[in-house]
Design a protein around this nucleic acid. Sequence first.
DNA 1: AAAGTGATCATG
DNA 2: ATGATCACTTTG
Length: 175
Amino acid sequence: MAKLDKNFYIQDALTVAPQLIGKILVRKLKNGEIIKHRITETESYCGEEDTACHARAGKTKRTAIMYEQGGFAYIYLCYGVHYMLNVVTGEKEHPQAVLIRGVEGYNGPGKLTKAMNIGKELNGIDLVDSDEIWIEDDGYVTSYTTSKRIGIDYATEPYKSMEWRFIANTHFVFA
DNA sequence: AAAGTGATCATG
DNA sequence: ATGATCACTTTG
């Protein structure tokens, strides 16, 4: 069971996002309980030029973590209700991140963070060093489908139409 | 179809 | 200090 390392996260968000499909998100609670879920859906957000990315307006207190080297968790509260889990990717000063949009058993980014007890106290944590949350590769491989990203009506073309959402075929195979 | 929710960011 | 915005979920 290989924990994903720094070299993996340093790649571009567009490289990391499809590779995260099928990987296992691991959460260890303070009471020692371990929760594991396979990732089924991700989205890439790529730099200041990507009008859908939080870093589009430049570096702020909130987005500063995206400018770090890959491997950190970026967690924020959306619509005052839901925590979103993102993985920072790429080199330092390249604000990129991959949103973990769904895991097996839970569709929807808000549901998965609730189910796995992920909150703002984990924002900025190092996924490579942490023993509270990390991602593992057990060799499982699956095909995936791409589509346009969700909930980014405020973005402009061409980014609005980029197919930067990756969905595991697991649940959608009609063989 | 629509509202609910609260941190964040840009104004004054 | 105040207000606008928002990468969603749930309800009717």
